[in-house]
Design a protein around this nucleic acid. Structure first.
Length: 625
RNA sequence: GCCAGUUUAGCUCAGUGGUAGAGCAACGGUUUUGUAAACCGUCGGUCGUCGGUUCAAAUCCGACAACUGGCUCCA
């Protein structure tokens, strides 16, 4: 989820605040106006934090009354009155003691003194470091603890709209009380607001869940298959298989070997890897096999019966480690690159599930590269190049590589206790990122437990941020599995392991691609690449000939001749997002030609059949955008 | 998992206590079609599930489930 949507757990510095854009100031001011309106309607409202965010602003409020969208018109009416009054935003610097006294009188984020203290504001005050100025902002009778900055007057807020209400934890901590988070959007003028609303409507049309239904890509069948476990329909399976084909070709060229591993493994696997018991709650509960269990010497009559526990795999790495361990390895074997489109199962919390983007069964574009320290930089670099190659193919321009490093305080708890290895591998990764001039940000204390990682963040059209792919260094788990190779000096050494999944999972990647392309896939990905429409019955044979020719070259081509008029069939083909629509009537048949229409681009004119076929094949082969 | 909202035909949706509706899709027929929807007809629903209130429940109440918006989490 977007960092910008997080409550300010890490307080913004004053410098960061001063760097707020004009629009952020306006939205922050609008949040004050909204709080002002809410407290006017419900005087017992307690406010927590009200920052601007990427998609507007929010204010967290604790209130007996449950705010619903039905309340929005009343709140908006109050807000409009405040904006119309054009009150100045007045900054006042106060001492900590005075601020505390005012908060205890319920005066903060309020219109006057109240019988109950402004409790969240007392909490916020505690977060302000000694020596930093404490300021209020006042408009009319409304005074709020706030570092600002704001617009000059409430009248500067040109146009706004409340969008939704959700719940959130105070300061984002699950242990804190829940508050109601009221979201709104604001702009300088109504035109911009209208444009934004229109864009939201556009974004809704691109939603992968909607397009998934329209195009027959996948279904989720909670009652039979289970929530979060998509069934890929034939059209969606085309996408899956085209991606796998791309991955297999790319990985073959990069020297990977393919492996296949079962979906289940014994408990011992995940005890050894360290995933159990730490990640047990993210895994499906185990299957217990009594029949196969080895019978230990009975300690007592009451001893529980022996049992083998099998888990559905939540990750492929331990399996690949066992493949590494299956044969003695020499330094000459390294780097060893094992790749698999592995199917994993994770028991995500029910509230986390989201279309294809967050699921419980997932197919990962996984691979593990076992290498020496000397080989690391080159291997890591090659992986990054692979990412960039893919982004180019898919036209992914907006992305950020999130480089997560360890935090010292987590050593031995959240992270394996290898302080020197952490520093060393992090430096290696950092150097690769700098050398390859990749757009990256460094985030401390977010690493995996076994090493630093890079997550590729992308944004869906609706503005949601997703981790699309991941690339991790692992200097811990190979040792847990006792993986070694025989080095030049005839000693056994533990390899480093790079986990990488440039295409992420099919589920999330395809979910993303659907929204990225709005369902209008490039020819090589399109579930139906060509549809041939004979104008009358007299051209059916000619049309069939074209379809046969294309299908012989693995092109997904269909013929359609039904009772519908040509207009109707074109409409249907366009609605189905068929990439090439070839209309063939008497004239085309006569000239051995086709009338080309490309989805979304309209008519392309009548062209020789052989030319069009050659062009189609070339576009597919080159995976043109 | 938490807070809130939603759930009516395959899809999109109407239906505020009194006999379940429309468009599209599907199916049958008529039409032989020239670049984003020809015409007629037919089929299709235990109104998410279970329970309650009522003479009577899609409609009111409760529980559960799923989905959605957020939060928390995300190897």
């Amino acid at each position: 989820m977007s960092n910008e949507n997080q409550p300010p757990a890490d307080r913004k510095t004053l410098d960061q605040r001063n760097a707020m854009t004009d629009l952020e100031r306006l939205r922050h001011s609008c949040a004050h106006v909204m709080a002002n309106a809410i407290v006017k309607l419900w005087p017992d409202a307690q406010f927590a934090a009200g920052p601007p965010v990427a998609q507007g602003f929010y204010y967290d409020v604790e209130l007996e009354h449950r705010i619903t969208p039905e309340d929005f018109p009343a709140i908006e009416a109050e807000m409009k009155a405040i904006i119309k009054a054009n009150q100045p935003f007045e900054r006042m610097v106060v001492t900590r003691d005075q601020a505390l006294a005012d908060a205890r009188r319920g005066r903060l984020a309020a219109l006057g003194d109240r019988p109950v203290a402004s409790k969240f504001k007392i909490g916020n005050l505690e977060d302000i470091p000694e020596g930093e100025a404490i300021s209020y902002y006042r408009n009319g009778d409304f005074i709020d603890l706030c570092a600002g900055p704001h617009v000059m007057r409430t009248g500067n807020i040109g146009a706004f709209k409340l969008n939704s209400v959700a719940s959130a934890y105070y300061k984002g901590d699950e242990k804190n009380p829940q508050v109601q988070r009221v979201y709104g959007i604001a702009f300088k003028n109504k035109t911009q607001l209208d444009e934004w609303l229109e864009m939201q409507e556009e974004a809704k049309k691109r939603d992968h869940r909607k397009i998934g239904v329209e195009m027959g890509l996948f279904v989720i069948d909670p009652d039979y298959t289970g929530p979060g476990m998509p069934l890929w329909l034939p059209n969606g399976t085309v996408l899956v298989e085209e991606l796998e084909k791309l991955a297999k070709e790319t990985e073959f060229a990069a020297g990977y070997r393919r492996v296949r591993t079962p979906h289940l493994a014994k408990e011992r696997m995940y005890r050894t890897s360290g995933h159990l018991p730490y990640y047990a709650e993210s895994m499906f509960p185990p299957m217990e096999m009594h029949e196969t269990a080895q019978v230990p010497a009975p300690e007592s009559k009451d001893a529980p019966p022996p049992v083998d526990r099998y888990y559905l795999k939540a990750m492929n790495c331990p399996h690949h480690h066992r493949i590494f361990a299956a044969e003695p390895r020499s330094y000459r074997d390294l780097p060893l690159r094992l790749a698999e489109y592995g199917c994993c199962y994770r028991y995500e919390q029910s509230g986390e599930l989201f279309g294809l983007m967050r699921v419980r069964s997932l197919n990962m574009n996984d691979a593990h590269i076992y290498c020496t320290e000397d080989q690391f930089a080159q291997e890591f670099n090659a992986v990054n190049d692979m990412y960039l190659k893919y982004f180019k193919i898919f036209g992914i321009e907006k992305y950020v590589m999130r480089f997560s490093t360890h935090g010292k305080e987590g050593l031995g708890k959240k992270y394996v206790n290898e302080p020197e290895l952490w520093v060393k591998t992090e430096e290696m990764v950092r150097q690769v990122l700098i050398d390859s001039k990749i757009n990256y940000i460094e985030v401390p204390n977010e690493a995996a437990f076994y090493g630093p990682k890079i997550d590729v963040q992308v944004w869906s059209v609706i503005g949601r941020e997703f981790t699309l792919a991941t690339n991790q260094v692992d200097f811990a788990v190979p040792a847990k599995f006792g993986l070694t190779y025989r080095d030049r000096d005839n000693t056994d050494k533990t390899p480093l392991c790079i986990h990488r999944a440039p295409l992420g999972t099919h589920e999330r990647f395809i979910g993303f691609l659907i929204e990225h392309y709005a369902g209008n896939f490039p020819l090589w990905l399109a579930p139906e690449q060509v549809r041939v429409l004979p104008v009358t019955e007299a051209q059916i044979d000619y049309a069939k000939g074209i379809v046969d020719e294309l299908r012989a070259q693995q092109v997904r081509a269909e013929i359609e001749f039904s009772n519908d008029k040509l207009m109707g069939r074109i409409q249907r083909a366009e609605a189905a997002r068929v990439h090439h629509i070839l209309v063939v009537g008497g004239r085309e048949r006569e000239a051995n030609a086709v009338a080309v229409r490309i989805h979304g681009k309209g008519q392309q004119g009548v062209r020789p059949r052989s030319e069009v076929v050659a062009e189609i094949l070339e576009s597919i082969r080159e995976r043109r955008f």
